[in-house]
């Protein structure tokens, strides 16, 4: 399974987005605000989700802000970290 698809799946499961399916989450949809509608509490949970499921640590806001824009940016961040 690709990182993007796995991300969509764990997002739905770990953030209890029961009203969504992976197909409904577009790769470039904004995770926060008008897009997926996540909030600051979800951001904290997302940091945990990424570390737990992908073994990648988001150390600070400088690193996290650009990574947590969309599925695409987060997947790219994870793949880069995993490659290091």
């Amino acid at each position: 399974m690709s990182v993007k698809n796995k991300l969509k799946q764990v997002l739905i499961e770990d953030l209890n987005l029961e009203d969504l399916t992976p197909d409904m989450i577009e790769d470039d949809m904004a995770l926060f605000g008008d897009g997926l509608g996540l909030d600051s509490l979800d951001a904290v949970e997302l940091v945990v989700v990424v570390q737990k499921h992908f073994g990648v640590e988001i150390k600070d806001m400088d690193e996290g802000r650009p990574a947590l824009q969309s599925i695409s940016t987060l997947a790219k961040f994870i793949e880069e970290k995993q490659a290091q």
């Binding site: 770990d14 509490l41 949970e45 945990v48 570390q51 737990k52």
Partner: peptide, 9 residues
């Protein structure tokens, strides 16, 4: 998973 992966929710 340790302290850093404990769910805040």
């Amino acid at each position: 998973f340790g302290y850093s992966c404990s769910s805040p929710t």
